[in-house]
């Protein structure tokens, strides 16, 4: 039960820190809303055209928004020195990693999922697409956080790791984006979308089982710079 309380304590501490940072907490969300609102300006305000683009655009901007906050998953702790005790403490490292991932998702994935329907309205997304958009985003952004943690751990000690982090992580995001965006598209076209969401869920379960260990191993390597 030591590990459980350790997990809880770490989670509480990180959430508290995130809330105390105030404005920074909402930055990924604001980025998400801003970039999505560029779409009608760059392409066309016509609802017909927007409806076609909406599922893909919302998914792409959600991906970019989670990517933006990925850099800080381990880096803040690495910079102020509180990461090293985690590497040394008796609690399994993968549990600590999982806590960090959960905090990242609560900061990015959850607000993005909650705001996405609003952007769906603004981008004239047909009504059938809303449910799969929300379910898919909730699951997909969690996958983004999990996979991204591996990349964030590898680049934790690098000064200019931001762009590099995106480079190594984006190729791994392809399946999530494909499943997520096409679930919405299928729903809009009146096709069955549950099987696609199930695939996404399977991917999430697989990522949940494997990535914390990979990220923990990566963290042990990454801290050496």
């Amino acid at each position: 039960m030591v590990s459980e309380s350790g997990f809880g304590a770490l989670l509480r501490r990180d959430l508290l820190l995130a809330f105390r940072s105030g404005g920074e907490l909402l930055n990924p969300l604001v980025f998400f809303v801003m970039t999505t609102s560029l779409v009608p300006l760059a392409i066309s305000p016509s609802p017909l055209q927007l409806a076609v683009m909406a599922p893909g655009m919302i998914w792409i901007t959600a991906l970019l928004a989670t990517l933006l906050a990925l850099d800080s998953v381990f880096k803040d702790d690495f910079d102020d020195g509180s990461l090293l005790p985690l590497l040394l403490c008796p609690q399994s490292l993968w549990l600590s990693v999982l806590a960090k991932v959960l905090v990242h998702w609560l900061r990015t994935g959850l607000p993005i999922t909650l705001v996405a329907p609003l952007l769906g309205i603004m981008l004239a997304l047909p009504e059938a697409g809303f449910l799969p958009l929300v379910i898919g985003l909730a699951c997909g952004t969690a996958c983004f956080s999990l996979i991204g943690a591996v990349g964030a751990a590898l680049t934790v000690a690098l000064q200019k790791g931001g762009v590099l982090l995106s480079l190594i992580v984006i190729p791994l995001y392809f399946p999530v984006l494909i499943f997520g965006a096409s679930a919405v598209q299928r729903a809009v076209e009146g096709l069955q979308y549950m099987p696609v969401l199930a695939l996404l869920g399977a991917f999430f379960a697989f990522a949940l089982l494997t990535t914390p260990f990979a990220a923990a191993a990566a963290l042990r390597v990454g801290v050496n710079g």
């Binding site: 591996v150 590898l154 190729p171 990535t211 990566a218 390597v221 990454g222």
Partner: peptide
């Protein structure tokens, strides 16, 4: 680091 990344890949 490269070994871990290529294994994940």
């Amino acid at each position: 680091a490269c070994a871990i990344l290529s294994l994940v890949g």
